[in-house]
């Protein structure tokens, strides 16, 4: 139907406008790609192929927990979160703080005895735990630079590439006297 196609086109245009924040509230369709640029000091932004992953994942809830209106896949989560209405936002960054362990974050998580999700990972932790966890079991890429292209600053940080230490002539590392 033409109407639906137009809506999709409109959504795609909107997505381009709102990039690189991406991951808006996208109803059931979702964006095709999401730019993840929070590690910009050491790596170039990762262009996450959302459309491809939609095809691979068994359910949206594999990554989006209970926010897409589907029941979560983790039996422990199902104890409270059953299938229900879609959440206002399904974006990772709207629940997982990019300022984890800041004073405000610690006050919010540690200071509230009623809070159940005390150890909710920050944005970086959430991405890596989800992505790497699934990639490990599904045989996806797991090396840092399989997803991230490291920049010059990153090379300096890891003392790698052109910043790599010169190999030791005597190879006397930890070899006694």
């Amino acid at each position: 139907m033409g109407g639906r196609k137009k809506t999709l086109m409109g959504m795609a245009a909107l997505m381009l406008l709102t990039a690189p924040t991406g991951a808006q509230s996208w109803a059931a369709d979702g964006p095709d790609t999401v730019e993840l640029g929070s590690l910009a000091n050491h790596y170039s932004a990762v262009t996450f192929d959302h459309a491809m992953h939609v095809g691979v994942a068994a359910s949206c809830a594999e990554c989006h927990h209970h926010t897409t209106g589907l029941a979560p896949t983790d039996p422990n989560c199902v104890r409270c979160h059953e299938a229900g209405a879609q959440a206002q936002s399904v974006a990772c960054k709207d629940c997982h703080s990019d300022k984890r362990f800041s004073a405000e974050d610690l006050e919010k998580t540690g200071g509230n005895p009623q809070l159940y999700h005390k150890g909710k990972p920050g944005l970086k932790g959430a991405y890596h735990q989800k992505c790497l966890g699934c990639h490990t079991t599904m045989g996806g890429p797991t090396g840092c630079q399989d997803c991230h292209t490291r920049n010059d600053q990153g090379d300096a940080f890891f003392h790698s590439g052109k910043y790599a230490p010169a190999p030791k002539a005597s190879g006397g590392h930890g070899g006694g006297h």
Partner: peptide
């Protein structure tokens, strides 16, 4: 200054959780 150690902040997997010991 109330900030977590550098290793904690740098870890991509958030292996480490920083907070009050009792929490």
């Amino acid at each position: 200054f109330g900030k977590p150690p550098a290793c904690v902040e740098a870890c991509p997997q958030e292996v480490m959780t920083f907070g009050k010991r009792k929490d």
